[in-house]
């Protein structure tokens, strides 16, 4: 028996035109194979429509929020690692560049001599600055000297504190904002 186009019509999702529906009905009366298929499909469709939807275990959204926190933390730590690695890489690259530059532009002896010369100049400069401040302190009244020391010490302490806080914040929370998470 020729089952086409009836076999295709059985699985059409949209209602058939009246004439086709009638043709199909007549075919089904004489074709047990197509009738079995139609019954099977109607059963499956009923199952698809009526099978109860599966639900997650209670507390799904709480688990999602906990997961979000964990993922964010992982992402921030990864960001910190990337930042540190990028900085270290940049420093290494600069050092390598300098090394290559000096190696290409001057001999080792010149390099050594200029290094000694520069170090000596820096040391002499530091000694001169120290002497300048010492002579300055001798002329200033002791109150002003104490105040100057106090201000310098406060600045150093503040800078240290800011540095420690920054390191702590980056290591704990990373450098990401909500926007970056998106």
């Amino acid at each position: 028996m020729n089952h086409q186009p009836f076999n295709s019509w059985l699985y059409e999702d949209t209602p058939l035109p009246a004439a086709q529906a009638e043709e199909l009905r007549q075919h089904l009366q004489t074709c047990p194979d197509c009738r079995r298929q139609q019954e099977a499909w109607l059963n499956v469709r009923h199952m698809l429509r009526t099978t109860e939807a599966a639900r997650p275990q209670p507390g799904f959204s709480n688990r999602w929020q906990a997961g979000l926190e964990a993922r964010r933390l992982r992402q921030q730590r990864r960001q910190v690692r990337i930042t540190i690695l990028a900085l270290a890489g940049a420093v290494l690259l600069v050092l390598l560049g300098l090394l290559i530059y000096f190696a290409l532009t001057s001999s080792f002896a010149d390099l050594f001599a200029s290094m000694i010369g520069t170090s000596t100049q820096v040391a002499v400069g530091l000694v001169q600055i120290g002497e300048f401040f010492q002579s300055l302190l001798r002329f200033l009244p002791p109150e002003v000297t104490a105040a100057a020391w106090f201000i310098i010490a406060s600045w150093i302490c503040s800078l240290c504190l800011a540095w420690v806080l920054s390191v702590w914040r980056i290591s704990r929370k990373g450098v990401s904002s909500h926007e970056e998470l998106h």
Binding site: L10, Y11, E12, Q37, A40, W41, N43, V44
Partner: peptide
């Protein structure tokens, strides 16, 4: 269409 046929056959 193919899936409907496959599901009916499996059923």
């Amino acid at each position: 269409f193919r899936s409907r046929q496959a599901l009916a056959r499996q059923f």
